[in-house]
Design a protein around this nucleic acid. Sequence first.
DNA 1: TTAAAACAAGTAATCATTTACTTACTATAT
DNA 2: ATATAGTAAGTAAATGATTACTTGTTTTAA
Lengths: 196, 196
Amino acid sequence: MSRETTDIRQEQIKKAVLEIIADEGLHNMSTRNLAKKIGLTEGAIFRHFPTKRDIIKGIMDDVTNDLINSLRNIALSPVKAENKLFNYLCRNVKYLKENRGITILLFSEAAHLGDKELKEKLNQILSEQKQFIIKIVKDGISEGVWNKNINPEDVAIIYMGIPITFNIEMVLNKTGLNADNFCKRMFTLILKALKK
Amino acid sequence: MSRETTDIRQEQIKKAVLEIIADEGLHNMSTRNLAKKIGLTEGAIFRHFPTKRDIIKGIMDDVTNDLINSLRNIALSPVKAENKLFNYLCRNVKYLKENRGITILLFSEAAHLGDKELKEKLNQILSEQKQFIIKIVKDGISEGVWNKNINPEDVAIIYMGIPITFNIEMVLNKTGLNADNFCKRMFTLILKALKK
DNA sequence: TTAAAACAAGTAATCATTTACTTACTATAT
DNA sequence: ATATAGTAAGTAAATGATTACTTGTTTTAA
């Protein structure tokens, strides 16, 4: 195999993990299969990550850095709540389309490694996402465009299911599912519940 | 160990599988751990199920027989659409509360055993659930109580996320989450989107 | 030339499953 | 009624395959 830097290999390994989970299932996410997919030996994997757990940890850090931070920016951006909600949802869906294995990895593996650090990371990812939605809903109510009798927390719960469902449909029906179209339709529906 | 019939043991084994998934994670669902949990030897497990895959198949059949059939009854019952939707959601949530491991099992394992039969079973479970919701929404529109501009398919997609989110929250925060309360709140919110 | 990155070939532990055998219940023939 | 034969459910210990991970050696790009 041609030599690559650890930085490049780490990215390849994390990407391969998500692809294996999405295409072959969690039970095929072995270091052996991982090495085969990249075209390396098992030993080489462990040159770039000390343990398999660290690969998962790395992927979760990516979620925090790539997804959560950009969702935060959207939630705090100085635009109308309606636009924020739309941007937020589209960004969320798009990220899951580009990282199909994420949902299954988070909810099936990370939550149960008996590993306090990873479980804490997962809880933080989820609760932050929820808080952002709650904020956007409150903003919309303050702007006077959304029904003030609505419980922002409930909206956040319903919202959370949307990207998850998208991800599940993506993994099951290999057919590509148009992310833009999906997010527009879901947005329209949520808006009906929020409007005065 | 005291002797029990295969019927009883099969129920114990399926129940234990779901509990292990919910409490200890997918990676602890080994025949060894399974036997330990029930208080049998590994060999005894295989006297009651030919393979581990057959245990999962059995659980999926239970979902079809226990959940899907009762959801069908609700969807086809001769009551107002609004009541149907409420009953449907509550039944769905209650089932997942009583079978906490189901969601993770279905989406993380069953979808990827490279097993046509199980994958087909899963797709049927999901598409039937969706069709029932679509029917209920169409009924409500026919009754003239819900907005006819709403796309029933979109409602079904948003709906599907609700029980899944409930299940995930249940597994993550061990705190019991009140099913009745949860389903009432989500129902109220969906209704806002459906109403004229 | 040298440090980082690859490899081949190991490790012990665990996986699902099978084996050879034992124990407990149940039906039947006397 | 009771000894007995057949069956269903149990066990302990082994199977080969696979797991995450390690070790020692070779290659390669700066």
